[in-house]
Amino acid sequence: MKKILVTGASGQLGSELFVLSTSYPEFEWIFADRTKVTLDDLELLKNQLNKIKPDIIFNCGAYTAVDKAETEKELAFTINHLSVELIAKYTFENNIKLIHISTDYVFDGSSSSALNEEAKTKPINVYGESKLAGELSCLKENPNSIIIRTSWVYSKFGNNFVKTMQRLMQERDEINVVNDQIGSPTYAADLAKAMIDVLRSSNWVPGIYNYSNEGEISWYEFALSIKEFGGYNCKIGGIKSSSYPTPAKRPNFSLLDKKKIKETYKLQIPDYKKSLKNMFI
């Protein structure tokens, strides 16, 4: 029985993989939070991997505090770059399959059309820089690995935009949401299923892939959909990003082109509204 190690087990994606794992008893699943797999202590991480001896690694663990990363650069790079480098090297040396999760924040947001895997990367914040460094190390140390870039991840688990909006719409009569950042949300449950489908496919094609739900929307439009499915009465206004400054800049446009993963792995990717509705059920 093949052993799958899932890092970042307590995060959104790790939690959704845990839910799905019971449907795939052909694998032995090991869900490791930061107490079992320590991404910020590289020596300890190496020992932990040697002890677990996985056949497959789903590397979902990451430093994701985008604004905090601006002042915690060393920690962000240790987790998002150096630990990925170590994991990639370990998986290559031991002939282990690796699926590593990355982000749309590797782009600067200046595009006006959907970004494919060959699009020029140019991060505009520390988090994006650290994730791009992780991608480059991953491909260098393990050319057989698969990297999946995703965007605007949400789930019923963890902290995310959907849960924040649900709370605010119940607490307030009126809220404002930025309307000039364009992309597409990703329901973590859909991404988790896609990862398993890629793994179980007879067609392992290394490289970078994009994955998000279908649709091209702003955060404001996403909030309107959350209001619709939640049945909230809160009034929602659209504002410019400049009216809501954050320590870390966000890309204004990061819509991902999913053609490559759909064609390579014959994946059916749901529309964002369909997936959002599923989360509310």
Rank of each mutant, 00 (worst) to 15 (best):
V153L: 13
E93T: 08
E214C: 06
I281A: 09
S111H: 11
P206V: 13
A88W: 05
F77M: 12
L44T: 07
L255D: 07
M195A: 14
Y90L: 09
H81D: 08
N80F: 07
P247I: 11
T7K: 02
K51T: 15
I208T: 13
I281G: 03
G128Y: 03
I217V: 15
I182W: 13
E129M: 12
L42F: 05
D190H: 14
F161I: 10
I261H: 02
L139S: 03
Y63H: 11
Q48D: 05
A62N: 04
E70T: 02
S15K: 14
N125G: 01
L75K: 15
R34V: 00
E221P: 03
Y187S: 07
L44Y: 01
E72M: 07
F77A: 06
E135V: 10
S201L: 14
S21Q: 01
K156C: 00
Q166R: 13
T35S: 13
W219I: 08
I208L: 12
V126S: 06
N94F: 01
E28F: 04
W152E: 01
P25C: 04
P247C: 10
L255S: 11
A88Y: 04
G134S: 07
I281M: 13
S243D: 14
G231F: 04
M195Y: 01
Y90C: 08
G8Q: 12
K193I: 01
K120S: 15
